[in-house]
Design a protein around this nucleic acid. Sequence first.
DNA 1: GCCGTTTTCGGCCCGACTGTTTTCAGTCG
Length: 574
Amino acid sequence: MDNSGVAAILSKMALLLEFKGENPFKAKAYERAARNIRGLGEDIGEMYRRDRLSEIPGVGGAIREKVREILDTGTFKAYERTAAEVPPGIFGILDIPGIGPKTAKLLYEKLDIRSVDGLLKAAIEHRIRRLSRMGPKQEEKILRSVQRYQSSGEPGRTPLATADPITEEIKEQLRAFPFIKKVIAAGSIRRRKETVKDIDLIALSDVPAKAMDGFLHLQKVTEVIEEGNTLSSVLYDNKIRVDLRIVPEESFGTLLQHFTGSKEHNIHLRKLALEKGYKLNEYGFTDIATNVIKRCAEEKQVYDHLGLEFPVPELREDRGEIEAGMQKRLPKLIEVEDIKGDLHVHSNWSDGEDSIEDLALSALERGYEYIAITDHSHSTAIAGGLSEKRLLEHTKAVSSIDEKFEGIRLLSGTECDIRPGGKLDYSDRVLQELDIVIAAVHAGLDQDRKTMTKRIVSALENEHVDILAHPTGRKFGKREAYDVDMEKVLQAALDNDKAIEINSSPSRLDLNDINAGMARKMGVWLAINTDTHRLDNFNNIRYGIDVARRAWIEPQDVVNTRHIKDFVSLFRIE
DNA sequence: GCCGTTTTCGGCCCGACTGTTTTCAGTCG
């Protein structure tokens, strides 16, 4: 089982403990352990084998034993015992926004509500309002929340690339109001997380009431979820929840810091503040001895006050950035401008829309020094994969077009299928003619972990392969990553001097931030590519860079930050 | 259940908003 599988069971245990009303700190302990395992840059199974589970923060003696049990048996006895005591539908109920463990417990004990459907029925029949602490408004709120939950399938997270334009649209409208001085996105959007639950905005205004009113009446607001003086929350365009907080100028920095999160980062920061004698909240530092409040207009002052180097938002996940900040050893992260070329580009020779000439021109305009034209191989027939004969014609075409362009080097390449048995789609004789060979899995995705791992590793052992593309195959909303031992794959890449791709396509982002972080720690080369199929796809590089930054990646970790001269010598291209 | 440069026991981040409440519990981030 992989890290997220182990974390999922521990999270469910936390929910069960909360539901049962046990010591809330015990539930929190399970949740914390789950979170840290999920965000671990190492394979949990490997840590178990090396007897290093106790190194994980939040994993003490008891949870360590449970993790061992999960890895050995797929579950643990205490969980099975606890889960057997409650109806399985409880997890669905707890998933509904606004319903927490206390409410779920009340509904179960008093009304025998065991599922989301049962909850809906009880709300319609007005049985909920009669319970203590409930009332008509609560009942109505639950009803709406259930209906929204059922109509959207699940509360769901929105891919960052979908949320970005919506955020810009709202910011633009808010900025048009004369009484709003400044609007900035905080939360997971600012941390550039791959998916976001909601859009967090903070705004400066001298007339908060007017600002809030303007927000609540934006044209595409479909529902007001919460309404307050400093904080309101709406459903925007029936798609995504948007929170707006109006903040005073003198505390802007502290508030921005607070609302950027992550929650885990903030908790750690506040503990640190307490150790130094301050209570930290979104308004500033309160000196516990004197009760004097220090507010920060600039975000950096918050970190300065604690003696920390400033961590960019992408780092704020409590994955070591606070410790590194204390030692002033934060990484100097890669930026979009560091990218000098794109190594994964499709032309109209296969399933791309544009000619090689147009791709070259567009890349040149972006200031790139090189791109590799990597059309599909023949197994991917649905994408117009090239036969060996066509590939050789393709290669000739690339070099003749290359001669026409000054200032950019066109590299001949392929995105070559790794067949189910591990063989490549082209013979070595053909592959050796190419400048860049990308290997990738496109079909036969349901192989078991061992077979898939062996398949990919054998491709990495081929001397002509340069890069492994989209290493886990996941696509948002379409399919999960296939089962593969990422640590073994990365080790094979390291042993054979291959690069691993961070695919910037917004539906892929593969590697993700956790796996990319693992690759970086192991010292594996990375390539950040767009997998362009249409000229404007080149812009997606931003999203690959986001992933890389969240993985603490610096320019020197990435092969395509090299200038052309260094790049061709690194890949031994003539 | 975890954790410790005041602690191996007694804490565990902090506040806004809502609804049902005459002072607060539950949920969320």
